[in-house]
Nucleic acid binder design. Structure first.
Lengths: 130, 130
DNA sequence: GAGCGCCTTCCCCTACAGTGGGAGGTCAAT
DNA sequence: ATTGACCTCCCACTGTAGGGGAAGGCGCTC
């Protein structure tokens, strides 16, 4: 028996977050013990780790939910699921490309800022490198 | 006399956004004409451009406000901006790394789905969420 | 003098990802 | 038997970056 606080702590989250994830379809409705407490398994903790990693990468919960639902279905062979996962991969690639482009822009700003003479920076005008 | 709509259009924003920026300390309270309309100067449009570029670099309004307040206080914000950009860059690098790792995980799911036998597809289990 | 387009303030609404707190139930230990 | 930790549900609230639309004022034109 793994209670909600225990599962939350194992995943580095709060109980509130787990209830929120269940409510929003990222976690299946947990089994309940006789007294109504949620009872989790080790698999749930893996799932929470995946969610945490997705969040850390900046994915929205809706995106993570999509991937998890596909993965849940992906245990069985289904061309439709395969295509949907391929779509998710393409989406992730697009998101990575967007971030890489933003990084290049910010790197340009930063390079100019790093090369600039701090003494030449004039408070009267806005820094020209942003 | 530059009215709010004109200034907004020049900066590629809406009037709502300008009032919001004023309310949140990114723009000083504008001078008013006799009828109470906000009256902006060319300097305001420069400031709006700066805000827009900061947003495009992924800075939060609170960060941009800090930069602008430093400048308004007569202190050259250059080193501060450089540090913010360096932090932004590090954050983007971390986010990209997480996303790339996650992509690899999803690619694994996809490989499993692609390797599975399509004939074994069970309509009761698969894609039931669709 | 009516209409149009812009402006003003005001308040509410959105999505996201939760957090906080209250009322009440449960469980193990003291 | 009572404390403290944990659990249940539910309602409200946070912060971000504004958007929607009402109710009314100003200026110009037809």
């Amino acid at each position: 028996m793994v209670r909600i606080g225990e599962a939350a702590q194992a995943a580095g989250m709060t109980s509130k977050a787990l209830r929120f994830y269940e409510e929003h379809g990222l976690l299946p409705a947990a089994k309940r013990t006789a007294n109504g407490y949620r009872d989790y398994t080790g698999e749930t903790v893996n799932r929470l780790d995946f969610i945490r990693r997705g969040r850390a990468a900046g994915l929205a919960l809706a995106q993570i939910r999509e991937i998890l639902l596909l993965r849940d279905a992906g245990r069985a062979p289904c061309t439709h699921v395969r295509d949907l996962l391929a779509g998710q991969l393409a989406g992730l690639d697009a998101q990575i490309a967007e971030l890489v482009a933003l990084r290049a822009t910010v790197a340009d700003y930063h390079a100019v800022a790093a090369a600039a003479d701090p003494e030449a920076c004039d408070a009267e005008r806005i820094c020209s490198y942003l």
